[in-house]
């Protein structure tokens, strides 16, 4: 009986198993091959984001980390930036599940005294054109500036009306709110939920730093 017409369950099972085995071997090989480049790409993305939110540094913040809990019990990872052996700033990475479409992940750069420096949203799936207005820091390219070299200084990030308003503030006891909820922060019309989530996210990261200040500073190498 030909293989193609067979109805023998055992033969069919064995055939499928062999195909699956071949596929698994091929995948294992490719997975091994791409493991290093994937790790490098992720590392690269983290480093680029850290460079944007931190003051100039000369250590490896991505290797100098500590994870603490924020006021809501979620994990916040802090990266410490050192310059000449002194702590010059921190970057806190956390997430808030209350976005309009799933969790919003952000990286908040803090000065050495705990005031907010730069806010960067690293992962979100908000509505294009509404929620993304709150989250994106994008340099607008036009056909006129396409071939001109950028005159931006190194380390400067494109402006964002919502994300820039947190700069210079310290997180006190009471949570930050948008003006619609009686707070002092502006929100984006049509993207109130996203604005709320981002405001809460920045506060919880900055607050996590205030609450765990001693532990974070000790672990990341200040006063050494």
């Amino acid at each position: 009986m030909k293989l193609k017409e067979t109805e023998n369950t055992v033969v069919l099972g064995v055939f499928l198993a062999v195909i699956g085995l071949v596929a698994a071997l091929a995948l294992a090989y490719i997975s091994q091959l791409t493991a290093a480049p994937i790790a490098a790409a992720e590392q690269n993305a983290t480093n680029q984001a850290l460079q944007k939110v931190l003051p100039p540094f000369d250590n490896q913040p991505s290797a100098n980390t500590i994870t603490v809990k924020d006021p809501d019990g979620r994990d916040v990872t802090f990266y410490g930036a050192l310059r000449d052996g002194k702590l010059v700033g921190f970057a806190g990475k956390g997430s808030n599940p209350q976005g309009y479409a799933g969790a919003i992940e952000g990286l908040v750069g803090l000065e050495a005294d705990g005031s907010v420096r730069t806010v960067l949203i690293t992962r979100q799936s908000e509505t294009p054109g509404l929620g993304t207005v709150v989250c994106d820091r994008k340099e607008v390219k036009t056909i006129f500036t396409l071939f001109k070299p950028s005159d931006k200084k190194d380390g400067a990030v494109p402006a964002n009306r919502i994300l820039d308003q947190f700069a210079g503030r310290k997180a006190m006891e009471s949570p930050w709110r948008v003006s619609k909820d009686g707070g002092e922060f502006e929100f984006q019309t049509g993207a109130t939920v996203t604005s709320r989530a981002v405001t809460a996210l920045v506060w919880s990261i900055a607050r996590a730093f205030e609450q765990n200040r001693a532990a974070v500073e000790a672990a990341l190498g200040g006063n050494k």
Partner: peptide
Amino acid sequence: AGIVPKKI
């Protein structure tokens, strides 16, 4: 395709 049993 030539060796794959029709059923699966």
